[in-house]
Amino acid sequence: MTTAPRSPRLLMLSTAMLAVAGIAFLGMPHGQEPPAPTATATHTPSAPSHAAATPPVGKPVADTAATTSPAAPRPFVVQSALPPHGEGTAGDPAVQQNLETAWPADLPATDERELLTVGRALLRADATGIGRTTWPNAFPDSGQAVAPAFATARFRIQAAIARRDHSRNSAVVHLVWAGTDRSGTFTDLRISDWHFTRTVKKGAATWTPQPRI
């Protein structure tokens, strides 16, 4: 189960990822090359004057090639910060780098590690159905038999970050993942997020996952 980011920061992050990835390029059929850019016409006078073409004798001739001749167009190259779909584990570091660049760290390292550990486990439980009973508040239906939406063997978290969510006592774990659903369709670069609130019990702070809406 995937959900669209619900906070302005998540919307910004998702938009940045899709924009940098080059939606049009990723959506093209395999093997199709992007169209070459259209060269911009350079305006030149249709009938240059004789005085401009033949300078007076005895005066140096200025090099006007840079201003009268259009520069040769450079090859058009589509560069994407995200790997193409189906790249496999080799493309995961690029996905992780994209998340970290688009959304700089803003949590203490200890909090970030805790949130990432729990966030990854929650996503795995949500997608495969394994381990839901560990978080009955996050999964109200954990006591019921639920058919897994994705196969465990083909489930993979490609990247994850934990960041603040509006206040110092709320956070969100943003995850990008891949999996094969019950119909046998494999899809990567899926996006999910889990929200947490920070609570203090007996002097120790802990992050509690919130139920999915």
Score class of each variant (00 low, 15 high):
Asp126Ile: 02
Pro56Met: 12
Ala147Gly: 08
Pro56Asp: 11
Leu10Thr: 05
Glu87Pro: 10
His166Trp: 14
Pro136Gln: 06
Ala138Pro: 13
Ser69Asp: 12
Ala66Met: 07
Trp194Asp: 11
Ser142Asp: 11
Thr42Met: 10
Ser80Asp: 05
Leu13Ser: 03
Gly31Glu: 09
Arg212Cys: 07
Gln158Cys: 12
Ser170Val: 11
Gly91Phe: 00
Ala121Asp: 10
Ala71Arg: 06
Gln158Ser: 05
Ala138Ile: 14
Asp165Thr: 01
Val77Pro: 00
Ala138Asp: 05
Ala72Thr: 08
Leu99Asn: 02
Ala125Tyr: 00
Phe139Ile: 02
Arg198Tyr: 15
Arg182Leu: 15
Glu114Leu: 05
Pro75Met: 11
Ala125Gln: 03
Pro93Val: 02
Ala90Val: 09
Asp92Leu: 12
Gln79Val: 00
Trp194Tyr: 07
Ala160Asp: 01
Asp193Ala: 07
Thr134Gly: 07
Pro104Thr: 01
Thr42Gly: 05
Pro5Gly: 02
Leu99Gln: 03
Ala53Gly: 11
Ala16Trp: 08
Glu33Val: 00
Ser167Lys: 03
Leu26His: 13
Ala149Arg: 14
Leu189Phe: 00
Asp63Thr: 02
Arg154Val: 03
Thr101Met: 06
Thr15Gln: 12
Pro136Trp: 04
Ala41Val: 10
Pro60Arg: 13
Thr64Met: 11
Val95Ile: 03
Gln97Ser: 13
Thr199Ser: 07
His195Phe: 11
Thr40Ile: 13
Pro73Gln: 01
Leu26Arg: 09
Asp63Glu: 02
Ala149Asp: 15
Asn137Ser: 04
Leu123Cys: 15
Pro55Ile: 13
Thr110Gly: 05
Arg182Ile: 08
Arg74Tyr: 05
His174Gln: 14
Arg132Val: 08
Pro5Met: 09
Arg9Met: 12
Gly22Ala: 01
Pro5Phe: 03
Pro60Ile: 07
Phe196Asp: 09
Pro70Ile: 00
Thr40Cys: 07
Asp165Pro: 09
Thr197Ile: 07
Arg212Glu: 07
Glu114Met: 08
Pro70His: 01
Asp141Gln: 13
Thr180Ile: 07
Leu10Trp: 00
Arg164His: 06
Ala52Trp: 14
Asp141Gly: 05
Ala102Ser: 02
Ser170Phe: 04
Ala16Cys: 01
Ser49Ala: 15
Thr44Glu: 14
Gly129Asn: 06
Ala160Met: 12
Ala153Met: 15
Gly184Ala: 04
Met12Leu: 02
Gln158Arg: 10
Gly179Asp: 03
Leu115Glu: 04
Thr133Arg: 13
Arg154Ser: 10
Pro140Arg: 05
Val78Lys: 11
Ala24His: 14
Arg154Thr: 07
Gly27Lys: 15
Leu115Trp: 07
Gly143Lys: 12
